[in-house]
Structure formats: structure tokens, C-alpha cells
Simulated assay, not measured.
Amino acid sequence: MQIATDRRVVSDIDPFSESFRADPYSHYAQLRALGPIVWLEKYGIWVVQHHAQVKAVLTDWKRFSNAGGGGLTNYFKEPNWRKPSIILEVDPPEHDRTRKVLMRLFTPGALQKMRNEFTHVAEALVSAAIAQGQVDGVADLVQPFPMKVFPDAVGMPPLDRDMMLVYGGMVFGAFGPRTPWYDQLLSRADEVSAWIDAHCERSALTEDGLGAAIYAAADGGEITHDEAKLLVRSFLSAGVDTTIDSIGLCLRALAEHPEQWAHLRDDPSLARAAFEEATRYDSSSQSLFRTTTDAFEFEGQMLGKHEKVLVLIGSAGRDPLVWDEPERFDIRRRITQQVGYGAGVHGCVAQMMARLEGEVFFRALATQVDRLDVTGPSTLRLHPGLRGLVTLPLALTGKN
């Protein structure tokens, strides 16, 4: 039911419910039909769902701040369970200083080195999956790839890295309301935080990885050594789960659209385009929050100071005002207004690396695999946080 009160367009849709998370796109269409900005009465928050307003909020850091936190909890009003990220939970000018350090990591030479190393890992994983024949696309194929290449690139030595997934669940699970699932995760907060903290120390990293380059910036006085450790921590927390889920959702889309898989199989150079289209079509980062810095009018509604605004990136990717046939997955679509990685000064700092991982993975898949068949129902995580798959049963047949 929707009603209008005090000029507000109000909806009782719950964006954190299991039914919403199981099928967000039908709910997005309902919200887009209500107008450019809607008040969600269950949580007392605003929501924007059209591409134009999503981009407007993401690119206006002066009015829509990151410092209030990327989730439902309002850090202007409530304390954070961990130290705030000095890249993800700050605004300019402080944000510019730390972002500059991270952006400098992705030189053409560094990206080429990553490409070579990523390709070796991806080709080996795909080859092993073909030999196995029947696989779980998440556990056997997708998850091992970012869990190997991203920490390797940062400089984390080989070890049991599963704790990173627990930490990622704690970080991204905070995007929604407190649930028993999240409380159970937080019961391990001290243990997990200590593990992450120890493995982000300079002494725990190799001397030739991205982490070492961050510490080198501290040696040069651009940031402090304490800040260097926080940046390494933020880098690890933001760069693993999102890529696992993005690659998994793209893999499912290709398997469920055999005509699109045929395009990629016949032309592996479409790998980057396939990953880009999947990010529009079914993004792992469906939503995030911004927090107003003051009271002001936006799209005919009066927003108060320090109010939460839910930004539906996933809805923007299906906005019919921007995309022709937005419900159609088409890897030959020309993507010119991507918001799957955010936008503005807070756009994903490692998006070049994420895109490279996706491109390399799907090129390796298309080069080696002839048939990609779904052998059973896939399952989604339904708790708050990133959108991602738990299982994806597949059969892979290699090329002759």
C-alpha cells in the first residue's frame, strides 16, 4: 500500500526482507512508479530508485555524505563497531588524500602484471572444473578465484583466508538492520578484527604487493603508518566479497541465457562486455546509503539533516528511461551510463581491478568451455548485505 502524507510519497515496502531480496527487480519497478524519491516508513529512510536520482545522490558528496556510513546505521548518531574506514566513510578533503594513494596503485604496468597472474589462476581453475564436469559454480569455480588473486596482489602470503569472508559478512551485513544472523557474526568481532588487523600489518605482507606500496606512501609522508594499515584493511574488505558475488551473478546470467553464452564462447574478446552488462543487469552491489549533511529540498521533498537515503543501484541498472529493454541480458549492449561501481568521488576505487578480474575469468571460461549448463536451482543469500549466490550447480563441457 502506498499513501501520500505531508507531500511525502510513502511506501511500506521493506528492502531488507527476504521476499524483496529474492526478487528485488519487481519491487524496484513498483518504487520507480511512485516517483523520484520515496519515504520508506518501516525504517524512516528515503530511497531513490531512478538512474537520474541515483547518480545525482552519488555525485553530490556535499549534501549526501559517506561519513554517516554505507548502511542503515547512522554513524552521525550511533557509534560504529569498528574504526571507520578512512576511504569509504569520509568525505573530501580527507577522502582525497587517501584515495590518491590507492589510485596510484593501478598503473598500466601494475595492471598488466595482475592480468598475467590472474590469467594463470583463472585458466587453472577452469581446466580443473572441466575435468570435474559437474561443479558448484560458486564453491568450486567462482569463490576460489578472487580469494586467491586479490589477496595475492595485496601481498597477503598463502594461508587460510576464509576469515576474510567472515569479515566481509560483518562489513556488508551492516548495510541492513540488526538480525540474529548479524548478531551471531558480531559475536566474533573481537576475534575477526584481531585476525584482520594482524594480517594488515606491514610485517605480514610481502614486499612487492599493493599493500607494500601503500606503506611506501606512509614512508613518504603522504599518510601515517596507522592510516596505511587502515587502507590495507579497507582494500581487503571491499575487494573480495563484491568480486566473488559479481562474477557469480554473471556466471549464472550466462548459464541461464545460452544465446549470450554462445556469443561469448564464439568471441572471448566479449568477456569484458559480458561482465559489464552483468553488473548493470544483476549487480552484487544493489544498494548503499548516503546521509544528508543538512536540511534541504530534493526532488520536491524536504529532507532533514542527518537523514538516511537508500540508493538503489540495482534499480538504476534496470531503469527503462535509460536502458532499452532493461530486463534483457545482452552482452553486446553498449554500456555508457554504468553506476554499478558507484559514481563521483566515492566511486569504487578498485573498479579497474574488479573489471580486470571479471574479464580474465570469463575469457578463460569462454576459451576453454563449450557447453555451460545449469543442472539445478541456484540459491541466493537472503540476509542483508551484498547480493550473491550460495550455490550454482553447473555442468561444464570442454572444447575439443
Rank of each mutant, 00 (worst) to 15 (best):
E227P: 09
G385D: 05
M103I: 07
E78H: 09
K62W: 03
I86S: 02
W39E: 06
P15A: 03
C250T: 15
K308D: 06
G340P: 04
I87G: 04
L72W: 09
M156Q: 10
A198F: 09
V142H: 05
V48Y: 02
C200R: 00
R115K: 13
W61K: 01
A128V: 02
R32F: 07
E256S: 09
P157H: 14
F329A: 02
A128Y: 00
Q260G: 07
K55T: 11
L312G: 06
T293Q: 09
K148M: 08
V166P: 02
S11F: 09
K148F: 00
A212V: 05
S19M: 09
H263E: 08
R332Q: 07
A110E: 10
L394A: 02
R188K: 12
C200H: 00
K55E: 13
L230D: 12
L392P: 04
T375G: 01
L394T: 01
V138K: 04
G344N: 04
E299R: 13
L254A: 04
A216P: 01
G44N: 13
E18C: 05
D60Y: 01
A253H: 13
E297C: 00
L249E: 01
A253M: 12
L236A: 06
G314W: 06
F362E: 08
T119E: 15
T5E: 07
H306K: 07
L205W: 13
D60C: 02
S287A: 12
T179Y: 12
A52K: 15
G248T: 07
I313K: 00
Q338H: 14
P393S: 00
M1T: 09
I331A: 10
N66E: 00
I313Y: 01
V47W: 05
A273N: 13
L102E: 11
Q337D: 12
P108L: 02
D294V: 04
R63S: 11
T367K: 04
G300I: 10
L249I: 01
R115I: 11
G173I: 08
I45C: 02
Q338S: 11
S203F: 07
R280N: 11
G221T: 10
S283W: 03
Q286S: 01
M302N: 00
G347D: 02
Q368W: 00
A33C: 05
I335Q: 11
Q134W: 01
L321R: 14
G173P: 06
L40R: 03
V48S: 09
E18K: 15
V47C: 08
Q53R: 11
F20W: 13
P144D: 01
L251K: 00
T119G: 14
I45D: 00
L111N: 08
V345E: 03
E307S: 07
R233H: 12
D370G: 09
R233I: 07
T375M: 09
G220N: 14
R265A: 14
A278T: 08
H263Q: 04
A316K: 09
L321S: 15
P158L: 05
R363H: 15
S234T: 11
T59L: 01
Q134C: 07
